[in-house]
Amino acid sequence: MNWTAIRAIYIFEMARFFRTLLQSFVSPVISTSLYFVVFGAAIGSRIDEVDGVSYGAFIVPGLILLTVMTQSISNASFAIYFPKFIGTIFEVLSAPLSFVEVVIGYAGAAATKSFIIGLIILVTSFFFVDIAIQHHVAMLLFLVLTCISFSLMGFIIGIWAKNFEQLQLVPLLIVTPLVFLGGSFYSISMLPPVWQTISMFNPVVYLISGFRWAFFGLSDVPVGASLAAIALFTCACLAIIGWIFKTGWRIRQ
């Protein structure tokens, strides 16, 4: 394993993140605060509690995952698409690197960025609501797995995209609706039975449910199912990336 090269890609990508501190840190904090104001204070004042948890606190795990998922995809897809767009990808392709090393470097950096942002949102939420996390290790595990799996997905999107419009297409038209309909701001049990059944086909439901369980001990689906879902999703992404590098699809002629 060429760890020096992985480190080089990782540091290079993280440097980009720190070059744009305002966009990287301040932007998610402001949007999260707005969510708290709108959903927590305005709407939350009309909803007392969900399964014994104040509505303001209830939406925290969903809010964190909403941002983490979109940031992971956005960071990872941009990280690999931009070198393709400006032509610097030749350097990565001609370097003595295997696809595993390239993915660890790019997706690892994207996952780290999202993880940092997730923690920032969690800290921000402490200023708005009282939260007592029940399963700290599980919470971190779910957060890390979500960051990694969605960064892998972002990497695939970055390879697939032929232009900036396509880069935004999947996050905008698929991921965001899935996250919003995945129980970020409500419990699945609050939905009519038909919609509860339909929601079970939304993979994001499993992630949010598991993450919320780590916070409050409450879940819409069994924790094991949540872990299995995220593991399955990660494996699927890895398999696709493996195929991409083996065939050179859209990166190597």
């Binding site: 090269a5 890609i9 290079f12 350097e91 003595p96």
Partner: peptide
């Protein structure tokens, strides 16, 4: 930094 990156990318 870009020159250092290239060196690192080749495992040096």
């Amino acid at each position: 930094n870009t020159v250092r990156f290239s060196r690192g990318l080749f495992g040096k």
